[in-house]
Amino acid sequence: MTINEIQDEIIDEFSLFDDWEGKYDYIIDIGKKLPPLDSQYKTEENIIKGCQSRVWLHAEMQDDKVMFLGESDAVIVKGLIGLLIRVLSGHSPEEIAKADLYFIDRIGMAQHLAQTRANGLFAMLKQMKLYALAYSTMSN
C-alpha cells in the first residue's frame, strides 16, 4: 500500500468513533500492542527532545526502504508512534520525505492532541522526515 492508501485506511477506522473517548481507546490499544524497542536502541541519541514523556525512535534501511522502530514510556504517545510507523515505515526515503500526512488533521488530531506540542507528535514526525532526508541524500 502507498502512504496515502494507509492514511485513508486509518481515516476510515477512526470514522467509526463518534467521540474522542473511543479514539483514545483505539490509540491506547495501538500503544499497548506496539512491540517494545530493543534496549540497544534506547540510547540517548535516539531520544526525541521536546516531549513530556521519553520517546525513542530508531531508523534503518532495509532494501531501499526505511524501517522505523519506536517506543515511549507513555501509552498514548506509544499509540501515536504506532500510527506514524504504520504510515511511514517500509517506504522509500523519497516517499517519506515528501509525504503529506493529512490523516493527522482528518482524524481530528490537529484540533485535539496536536494542540499541545508537549505530546511530541510533531517532533516525532519531524525526526522521521529528517531520517528519510538523510537516507535519500546518502543514496543520491
Binding site: A74, V75, I76, V77, A118, N119
Partner: peptide, 13 residues
Amino acid sequence: GIHHQDIGIMLDN
C-alpha cells in the same frame, strides 16, 4: 504504572 502525560491527556478529554 501509568505515565503522568497519559493522565493529563485523558483528564483533559
